[in-house]
């Protein structure tokens, strides 16, 4: 086996995600991403299962693996108990570790996601927060959202929220001790190195 196949199969999720694909294609039939993009989870599982290093490397450098929406509708449908959506998680991880994600348009979006969601977690302790859903970046949120953001300090308490307050409650400021522990977890488990690597352009080939 080559390095990429070894890396993929060494992921703890692999055993549960790809047992023995028989190429029936029900994952593709149910897949919302396959309806919208030129995307075929059946072919991805087949490529990974065959273990052809060259084909897998090609896959890791392409847009394809970034099309999945992680709904996991494939999981309960697969007659063999495979999880194509989790195979995607493994492929994306390896693509980022190898720096291949930079070669595809969709892959490069990881930089924006890290600068958004990744930074949110490390800076404020939440993945999403109203302060980060700016109306000018989210026209689809509509005028009701714009009104809420404009008046959030005065309106949020009406809903029982504790906007930027101390103590418990929705939208509370997360205390410094908690943030320190959260960041320590990222440091100890490799999350911080991964965060910095993606924001700094990742590993070169």
């Amino acid at each position: 086996m080559g390095n990429l196949i070894d890396l993929i199969r060494s992921d703890a999720r692999y055993e549960d995600s790809l047992k023995a694909c028989m190429n029936c294609g029900i994952c593709t039939a149910i897949c919302p991403a396959a309806e919208f993009y030129d995307y075929d989870p059946r072919r991805i599982c087949d490529t990974v299962q065959r273990g052809d290093e060259e084909q897998v490397e090609k896959l890791l450098r392409e847009d394809t693996i970034w099309y999945c929406g992680q709904c996991m509708s494939c999981k309960p449908r697969c007659p063999r108990g495979n999880v194509p959506g989790a195979v995607i998680n493994i492929l994306r991880k390896v693509s980022q570790e190898m720096g291949y994600y930079k070669e595809s348009r969709m892959g490069r979006q990881q930089v924006a996601l890290m600068a958004g969601i990744g930074n949110n977690i490390l800076e404020i302790g939440y993945c999403v927060h109203p302060d980060k859903v700016r109306p000018e970046m989210h026209p689809e949120q509509g005028p009701a959202w714009e009104w809420y953001i404009k008046n959030i300090k005065e309106v949020a308490p009406k809903f029982g929220a504790n906007y930027h307050g101390k103590g418990a409650g929705a939208l509370r400021e997360i205390c410094p001790e908690t943030m320190e522990e959260l960041r320590n977890i990222f440091k100890v488990t490799g999350g911080m190195d991964f965060h910095d690597a993606i924001l700094n352009g990742g590993k070169d080939d």
């Binding site: 992921d11 703890a12 999720r13 992680q70 998680n89 994306r92 991880k93 980022q96 990881q110 996601l113 890290m114 969601i117 990744g118 977690i121 302790g125 939440y126 993945c127 999403v128 997360i174 908690t178 943030m179 959260l182 488990t189 490799g190 999350g191 991964f194 965060h195 993606i198």
Partner: peptide, 15 residues
């Protein structure tokens, strides 16, 4: 704090 779920499923937080 966050469970990191959105980060996990956008593949910006390792397992």
């Amino acid at each position: 704090h966050t469970c990191t779920g959105i980060g996990y499923h956008t593949d910006v937080v390792p397992l």
